[in-house]
Simulated scan of single mutants.
Amino acid sequence: MNFTKTTEQSSHYDRLEQMSVHDLLVNINKEDQTVPLAVAQALPQIEALITQVVAKMKAGGRLFYIGAGTSGRLGIVDASECPPTFGVPFDLVNGIIAGGDKAIRKAVEFAEDDREQAWNDLVAENISDKDVVIGIAASGTTPYVIGGLEKCHEHHILTGCITCNEGSPLALTAQFPVVVVVGPEFVTGSSRMKAGTAQKLVLNMISTTTMIQLGRVKGNKMVDMQLSNVKLIDRGVRMIMSEIPVSYEEASALLEQHGSVRKAVTAYKP
C-alpha cells in the first residue's frame, strides 16, 4: 500500500544540536502551535466517532482504547482519569497497551508487531458487541492495533481510530477514523511530540464530551468527581456553595454526609 507517512518525513529544521536552548524552545513551540489547527480539521470525524461512542455507552457498553508505546500510554492516561473526574466505574473506559502493564514504563520489544495479541487482550476483558474499541497509532501502521480492529469487525464490534497519517492502513480499517495530519516532527520521526499532542487533544474531546453527554457534568462542574484528596474536597465544598445558599462549614458537612457534590445538592432542603 502506498501512502505518504508524514509523521516520518524529515523535519523542517536541521542542525538541531547547533541551536541554542532559546532557539530550540521557540521552534518546538512554533511547531506545537500547528497542532490544534490540525485537530480542528478533523472535528467532523471526531464528532461522528463520539456520537457512536455515546450511543453505545447509553445502551450499556464500554469504551476501550488499544495502542502501543506512546499511543498506548496516552489511552491509559485518558481512561484512568475518567473514574476520579466523572465518578464512573473503573471498567467503563479502559486503556490497553501492547506488552501489558509493564509496557507503561518500559518498552516491550516487538509487542506492537503481534497482530493477534490485541484481540487476546480484549477477550480477557470480556469484550462484546455492546462495546466500542478505538485504536490509537500515530503511524497508522501498528500491527497490534490494526489486527485488533480487524478481529473486532469479525465479532461485530464498533471501531474507531486516532492516527496522524492520511490513507494509512489503520485509517482504512477503522469504521470511524479520526485522522489528524500534523506533518513532520521537530525531531524527525519522534511522534511522541506533535502527533502525541494531537492524540491527547482528541482523547480529551472523546472522554469529556462523552461524559457530558452521559450526564456526568452539571453546568460546568464535575459534580460526580471522587473526593480523594484535600484539594478535591475543598473544590467540592465550593461547588456546593455555588449551587445552594450555605456557608463553607454547612457545605462541608453536607459533602461529608452525602459523599458527592451531586447528592449533597440534591438532598439539600432549606
Rank of each mutant, 00 (worst) to 15 (best):
R62E: 08
V217M: 04
T141E: 14
L158G: 00
K218Y: 08
L122M: 05
T159K: 04
A195V: 07
Y65Q: 10
T141R: 15
I96Y: 09
G100R: 06
V123A: 13
V132R: 04
V133A: 07
P177S: 01
E109P: 06
Y268N: 09
D131W: 02
R62T: 03
A124M: 02
K221L: 15
V21H: 11
R262N: 11
D32G: 07
G135R: 04
A111R: 08
K263D: 14
T173W: 02
G72L: 07
G67W: 07
K151H: 14
D234I: 07
R192F: 02
K194A: 01
E109A: 12
F86M: 05
C152M: 10
I136P: 05
L25T: 10
A68H: 06
A59K: 09
D234N: 14
G259S: 05
L170V: 06
R238F: 08
V93N: 05
L74R: 10
I46W: 01
S128D: 10
A38K: 10
E116S: 13
S242D: 15
L43M: 15
T51V: 08
L201A: 12
L74V: 09
L74D: 07
G219C: 04
R192C: 03
V77R: 08
T173L: 02
K263W: 03
G100P: 10
H22D: 14
V223D: 02
L255A: 12
I127Y: 07
E154Y: 10
T70W: 05
E185N: 10
K221R: 15
S247P: 06
V145W: 12
S190F: 03
F176I: 01
D121P: 09
G160D: 05
K151F: 12
S191F: 11
K200V: 04
T197W: 08
P245H: 14
V178K: 07
T159R: 05
E81V: 02
Q213G: 00
Q175E: 15
T159N: 05
D23R: 13
L232I: 14
K194T: 00
M1G: 15
L24S: 08
V21N: 11
T197C: 03
P89E: 12
L172D: 13
I96E: 10
L25D: 00
V181D: 13
I104T: 10
M225D: 01
V133S: 04
V230C: 00
L25F: 14
S139I: 12
V181K: 13
L37G: 00
Q199R: 06
T34G: 06
L254C: 11
K102H: 11
E185M: 10
G196N: 05
I50M: 01
E17V: 04
T197S: 12
N126K: 15
I206A: 07
E31V: 01
T7E: 12
S10G: 11
V178I: 15
T85K: 01
K106Q: 14
L254V: 06
S139P: 08
R192V: 06
K151I: 01
V187R: 02
I134Y: 03
A55G: 02
L37Y: 09
S139V: 08
Q213F: 01
V133E: 07
L16Q: 13
E166I: 14
Q257T: 15
A55L: 11
R105L: 13
E249Q: 14
I162L: 15
E250Y: 00
D23M: 13
S139D: 10
R216D: 02
V202S: 08
K151T: 08
E8F: 07
D32C: 01
L92W: 10
R262V: 12
D32A: 11
I240D: 13
